[in-house]
């Protein structure tokens, strides 16, 4: 698939998630936009999955640990055919199975998340499970940067290195913002790369909006060096929508009629992602 196609896919998913949030009148807009390109890279360029057979035993596993960024993830699963696209408009509405955090009632979702700091330990179990059962699938987990203040993340980090899980890749959506402001003001994370390296991980920094770059990076990972892989993906919260970019209040803002029109126009004008 060409670079242009990935960009187009990411733009379409961003537009869908904005429409979904607008329709639902609720959503974590900023984080959904910052993580879209990472999710597109994984689901369209890397992962071995079968939408017609969501429980296929050898499927690659993905855990959205920053569960509040569920909107883009749902749009991707629908686009891939895990469930009908029309269902997206039921998001957060009475009786819907599409809610504000991932649940595994939705085909394609492995585990319920939403409580931060849970995804990495679960992904460690999935990756260790592959080794124990002799399966070749790989496991991916996406975490937020604010989430890294949770202690359980570091329990999982230690365990992944301890069990030499080179079939595990964790990605941090490093947009630098959380609800209350800059991650460095709320709870200092730097030196982040050095921290993960000290925990025994092989760490890469990448542009989290360069879909092609993320795909080729992940394709290059050695699977036999006994080290789990970490990508610190530098991103922009609210990516692609001029008035949302780097504005903490859009963590869970809902666009007005005018804002939605402007946001969709922004996205059409400049397809984000390199």
């Amino acid at each position: 698939m060409s670079t242009t196609n990935y960009r187009r896919i990411a733009t379409e998913r961003r537009k869908e998630l904005l429409n979904m949030i607008y329709e639902a009148k609720t959503g974590h807009t900023g984080g959904a936009l910052s993580s879209t390109d990472i999710l597109v890279a994984l689901h369209y360029g890397i992962m071995n999955i079968k939408p017609s057979e969501p429980k296929w035993a050898d499927r690659d596993r993905f855990v959205l640990s920053k569960g509040h960024s569920v909107e883009g993830y749902l749009c991707i699963l629908a686009d891939l055919g895990f469930f009908p696209k029309a269902e997206l408009m039921t998001f957060s509405k009475y009786g819907s199975r599409l809610i504000g955090h991932p649940t595994n009632k939705v085909p394609g979702i492995e585990i319920c998340s939403g409580a931060l700091g849970h995804g990495l330990p679960a992904a460690v179990g999935m990756a260790l499970g592959a080794k124990k059962s002799g399966r070749a699938y790989k496991t991916y987990v996406l975490m937020g940067d604010g989430e890294l203040a949770e202690g359980s993340v570091w329990e999982g980090a230690m365990a992944a290195a301890n069990y030499e899980l080179d079939n595990l890749t964790a990605i941090i959506d490093r947009n630098g913002l959380q609800i209350s402001g800059s991650t460095e003001d709320v709870m200092k994370l730097e030196q982040l790369k050095a921290k993960w390296e000290a925990f025994g991980w092989q760490v890469f920094e990448a542009d989290g909006h360069d879909i092609e770059g993320l795909i080729s990076l992940m394709k290059s990972f050695p699977q036999t060096n006994g080290k789990p892989h970490m990508i610190i993906a530098n991103t922009t919260k609210g990516k692609g929508v001029s008035f949302m970019e780097n504005v903490a209040k859009w963590h869970h803002g809902v666009p007005s009629d005018e804002q939605l029109a402007q946001a969709l126009a922004d996205l059409d004008k400049t397809e984000v992602g390199k």
């Binding site: 585990i111 849970h118 330990p121 179990g125 124990k132 059962s133 999982g156």
Partner: peptide, 21 residues
């Protein structure tokens, strides 16, 4: 052996169950 980390242990167990164990 998970070490003294109950949160990680229970989370890992959920992941292992997902793997069919």
């Amino acid at each position: 052996e998970v070490g003294i980390a109950e949160q990680n242990c229970v989370g890992m167990a959920a992941g292992l169950a997902n793997a069919g164990l």
